[in-house]
Computed example of a mutant assay.
Amino acid sequence: MKLQVENLNFSYNHHKILNDISLHVNNGEFVGIIGPNGSGKSTLLKNLYRALTPDSGSIYLDHENYRDLKIKDIAKKLGVIGQDNGVPFDFAVNEIVAMGRSPHKKLFEGDKKEDKEIIQNALNTVGMADMAERNYLYLSGGEKQRVLLARVLSQQTEFLVLDEPTNHLDIHHQLRIFDVIKGLGATVLSAIHDLNIASLYCDRIYVMKDGSIYKSGTPEEILTSENIKEVFNIKTDVRQHPVTKKAMITYLPESIFNKGEDIVV
């Protein structure tokens, strides 16, 4: 599954939010999007999964124009986790996860044995099987996020679009969820808040700034002290981790530099 975005523009109330965005995600790639709050990451992803409609530009999924695809056909190809955990009705956890099977069914068709096995496997994968009967509305933010991932896993799509999928999760579950996503072998485009997580899991990274693509490249090319300072306006120490061999970012608070000490970064 491959995604190609060409010259995408989006405005809200005549205010330009996305400016001439072009990017691609190759089959099997794990591509991250990073950038400060307000840079347009979530708005871009919403345009990609049709929660918003671009002003102009083209989106192709496996060389098919989005405009030519029906919603149900897209749902068979594309799994989405947004930042909004809201569910308007009172559903149990297993009912939420079962919703991921709907693109593969006819109207009013019930769950078959295969569907139930897929749902159970998805709950097991995210560690929520023991809460299958719990009310979704009363879960913690992190538990809700794991349920939403299980729903996407039950959808069994080849392409995942994720908007900070480990939001609200502790570090154990952050790593577990990204290990699961990486292990799927699916094509992934994900907004990621934690730069060290992006370094560990991404094959390539797009950097957004002020609604545009600022830079793109491998984690090693992108996650440098110079780039991070330019985009996030913070000082960092970046070096190769001795175990993972990936870029490791240490954030350096301004208070350190205000003590008059000689620090080399």
Rank of each mutant, 00 (worst) to 15 (best):
N227W: 14
R204H: 10
I171E: 11
I74K: 00
A129K: 15
V5Q: 04
Q240V: 02
I33K: 02
G82R: 01
N167K: 00
E109D: 14
K105V: 12
L149V: 12
E6W: 09
I33Y: 04
F159R: 01
I205H: 08
V5C: 15
F89S: 03
H15P: 01
N94Q: 12
P219K: 03
A191T: 07
V265P: 01
R151V: 02
S58V: 08
V87E: 04
Q156W: 14
I171T: 14
I222G: 05
K144C: 14
G86P: 02
S154R: 09
M248T: 07
A132E: 15
R151C: 04
L252S: 04
E158G: 11
G32S: 04
I249P: 01
T250N: 10
S199C: 02
N27K: 15
N85R: 02
D210R: 13
G35T: 06
V188K: 13
A92W: 06
K72E: 11
L18W: 02
G79D: 08
G110N: 11
K70T: 05
I33E: 11
N9I: 00
L252H: 08
G260F: 06
I33N: 14
T250Q: 06
T224V: 11
K16T: 15
K182N: 11
G183H: 09
D20E: 14
N258F: 14
D84Q: 12
L44Q: 06
D237P: 01
S140I: 06
I33T: 09
L175Q: 12
E221P: 02
K112I: 01
V25F: 01
K215V: 09
G211T: 08
L252R: 14
T43G: 06
G110D: 10
N233A: 10
A186T: 12
N13D: 06
V264N: 10
G185V: 13
I256L: 15
